Simulated assay, not measured.
Amino acid sequence: MTDLVRLLIVDDHPVVRDGLRGMFTGDPGFEVLGEAADGAEALALAEALRPDVVLMDLRMPGMDGVTAIGRLAASGSPVKVLVLTTYDTDADVLPAIEAGATGYLLKDAPREELIRAVRAAARGESVLSPSVAGRLMGRLRTPRTPAEEPLSQRELEVLTLVARGSSNREAAARLFISEATVKTHLLHVYAKLGVNDRAAAVAAAYDRGLLTPGGR
């Protein structure tokens, strides 16, 4: 018998939550523990209910999905997060995966694919929709030059704190992410700016106008 997978559904659209609840409630292999309409509510319910998998939308009012994923990861929670969204751009996919999402699926996925993906996520396996997998592979095969690739919002936030003298641990605490995630963001910053250390990254960012005295 297949192990029961306990779910938390997070989406700001009630009709989407209702549809997902109906789909999984009708399958004896799943138990829907609760629903949340934004990231903050998701964090509270994840702590209280201890689901196996969180189905997480990304773009929600209040706390967005990426922030919630990062905070779950930083808290040490063992819950697996499967992103379920309509967006598959680099600006959506990469931050979600870097924040700690186990998988990334689009809302137009067939029912059977979604069910398989949730079971795989519960086992800790990475699950990517074909379009997302193709986008990531394309990025790896044709990396942009540093001058062509802008820093992400989170990378700018990390670099701003570094420029103000924060350590990796302090930056992690301020941004509610893990220290390892801060290090990963800094490595991406170094690669994009063509530098090898924190001081050079800050200097390059000021030189390019990414950071300004008294602000960013």
Score class of each variant (00 low, 15 high):
Arg116Ser: 12
Thr181Gly: 09
Leu161Val: 09
Arg71Ala: 12
Ala147Ile: 15
Ser178Cys: 08
Leu82Tyr: 06
Glu170Asp: 15
Pro110Ser: 06
Glu157Ala: 15
Asp90Glu: 14
Leu8Trp: 00
Val16Phe: 01
Glu41Leu: 05
Leu45Glu: 10
Arg119Tyr: 03
Leu210Cys: 05
Val16Trp: 00
Leu58Thr: 09
Gly138Arg: 10
His13Leu: 14
Leu49Ser: 12
Leu193Pro: 01
Asp90Ile: 14
Thr102Met: 10
Arg141Ser: 13
Arg21Tyr: 03
Pro28Asn: 10
Phe176Cys: 13
Val158Leu: 09
Pro146Lys: 08
Leu151Phe: 08
Arg6Pro: 05
Val66Leu: 01
Val132Ser: 00
Ala46Cys: 15
Asp3His: 13
Tyr206Gly: 11
Glu98Gly: 04
Pro95Asp: 07
Pro213Asp: 11
His188Gly: 15
Ala122Arg: 03
Arg116Glu: 12
Arg154Thr: 09
Ala200Ile: 06
Arg144Phe: 10
Ala74Pro: 05
Glu113Lys: 10
Leu105Tyr: 02
Gly214Lys: 10
Asp3Lys: 15
Gly100Asn: 08
Gly39Ile: 01
Tyr104Trp: 04
Asp11Glu: 13
Ala200Leu: 05
Thr102Asn: 10
Gly76His: 10
Glu155Thr: 08
Ser178Arg: 09
Glu112Leu: 07
Ala147Asp: 14
Thr181Ala: 14
Val158Gly: 02
Val162Arg: 08
Arg119Pro: 00
Ala68Phe: 01
Ile69Gln: 00
Ala99Ile: 12
Tyr206Ser: 10
Val32Met: 06
Asp52Ser: 10
Ala201Lys: 02
Leu45Trp: 04
Pro213Thr: 14
Arg144Ser: 12
Ala101Pro: 11
Leu8Ala: 05
Glu113Leu: 08
Thr145Trp: 09
Leu114Asp: 03
Tyr206Lys: 09
Glu170Cys: 04
Ala99Asp: 04
Arg216Ile: 14
Gly194Pro: 09
Leu82Arg: 02
Val54Ser: 03
Tyr190Ala: 07
Gly134Glu: 06
Val93Ala: 01
Glu157Trp: 06
His188Phe: 14
Asp38Phe: 03
Glu47Ile: 08
Asp11Asn: 13
Leu49Glu: 12
Tyr104His: 04
Asp64Ala: 07
Val54Gly: 03
Leu49Cys: 13
Ser77Arg: 10
Asn168Pro: 07
Leu210Ala: 02
Asp88Ser: 11
Lys192Ile: 14
Val182Met: 11
Leu106Trp: 00
Val79His: 06
Ile97Lys: 04
Pro143Val: 12
Leu175Gly: 00
Gly62Met: 10
Pro14Gln: 02
Met60His: 05
Glu31Val: 09
Leu186Pro: 01
Arg21Pro: 12
Ser75Lys: 08
Thr160Met: 11
Ala171Trp: 01
Leu114Arg: 00
